[in-house]
Design a protein around this nucleic acid. Structure first.
Lengths: 134, 134
DNA sequence: AGACTGCTACGACTGTTGTAGTAGGCTCGA
DNA sequence: TCGAGCCTACTACAACAGTCGTAGCAGTCT
């Protein structure tokens, strides 16, 4: 358990996100991407974040050329999962059922998504047990 | 916009949770509940959290008897919603569709939940627009 | 009245996060 | 070879989060 992906700060996360999106990158690369997004950060600030992320085991670095190249060590999935689970545990008793129901009831879905949901669910309930269909 | 429910810390949240669960309570009440849960905190620590929560506009206090009685000012729903949205924005492009699909695919649902999901969705897709049904 | 008990106000300390500057080393072109 | 740039290491610092101690006030018990 070397990577403490739980305590990645907000700003650190932004940096990690650019690595997920743009693959391996140097400090300058990351900074440029952030700047394009309107996020103005000093070079050394980005460096600090990458260094801290490395200490936390979330990225690795290797010096191929002039500068260190950083690449993500934890997957986006892993982190999103753990974030989501934190919310789940704190507010939904750890089980996703109520959460999903709430989201669906609030109708924040496109028709395409609803269709897909239906498919997935229909595929799902075939396995566990028989259900009557109206 | 007086209540900044976004920056409630982890420990502060625990305190707020006990208010949601047990209604209005004094510092000592909250502390006792936490102790029962195995969360050992000094009286003054709990007091600090409640004071900070009050500064953030998340609880109110009134002195009816000997001690101040604190009661939640933001609803659990409000906070869970904003926490969830943070995760949604950071990892799921702000839209809950992919999140729900991921959760469902991971099969973390009981059969009862699946049934309920099906009901809710079937009721849902009637409204927005006509859909072809396989 | 004096002692005791419980409550709050205030301050303090540590670790973390967000943000950045400075100093010194390496590299490449002139 | 020498200077201009780019890179990293180290340091700094404010804000906030987590944690608690002390001191003083108010009510209570004897």
């Amino acid at each position: 358990m070397t990577s403490r992906e739980a305590d990645i700060g907000q700003a650190e996360l932004e940096v990690l996100q650019t690595l997920w999106e743009h693959g391996p990158a140097t400090v300058r690369d990351v900074m440029n991407v952030l700047h394009e997004r309107g996020r103005q950060l000093a070079y050394t600030t980005v460096l600090t974040f990458l260094t801290r992320l490395e200490q936390k085991g979330c990225v690795t670095s290797d010096k191929s050329g002039l500068a260190y190249v950083y690449r993500p060590k934890v997957t986006r999935d892993k982190v999103s999962r753990s974030r989501l689970e934190a919310v789940l545990d704190a507010f939904y008793d750890g089980s996703p059922g109520p959460l999903v129901l709430q989201l669906i009831r609030e109708g924040k879905f496109t028709n395409a998504e609803i269709a897909e949901l239906q498919e997935v669910i229909d595929g799902l309930d075939a396995k566990p047990q028989r259900r009557t269909r109206s």
